[in-house]
């Protein structure tokens, strides 16, 4: 995966990890989102890309790499849909 296609955080989103969970504040939409443990891991390490994220998750958790990768990509799609991730078209 090239650097251009890696998911990027929306600059309108402020965030902080509190007690292991990422809290995202979408300033323009006025929306708060809280991520679970693996959601937080993905959010904090977006620059790794879905393949490496899935491999790392599968090493530590009871899940196969393909299943983890599918879930990572679905999660990123959900973040894109909610505006937390930039859609990459700009």
């Amino acid at each position: 995966m090239s650097e251009e296609t890696l998911p990027k955080r929306n600059p309108d989103v402020s965030w902080r990890t509190i007690e292991g969970q990422a809290v995202l504040i979408h300033n323009r939409l006025g929306e708060i989102q809280v991520l679970n443990d693996l959601g937080t891991y993905i959010w904090e390490h977006l620059e790794l890309g879905p393949e490496i994220l899935a491999r790392n998750i599968a090493q530590e958790h009871e899940v196969s790499v393909p299943d983890a990768q599918r879930d990572v990509e679905e999660f990123m799609q959900a973040l894109r849909g909610s505006g937390a991730l930039a859609d990459g078209t700009d």
């Binding site: 939409l29 006025g30 809280v34 679970n36 443990d37 693996l38 009871e62 899940v63 999660f75």
Partner: peptide, 17 residues
């Protein structure tokens, strides 16, 4: 020993109006 797997997810969402 591997940890139990829980899909990555948004667990709370609120619109502030």
């Amino acid at each position: 020993m591997k940890k139990p797997y829980e899909k990555p997810a948004v667990i709370y969402k609120e619109r502030i109006e």
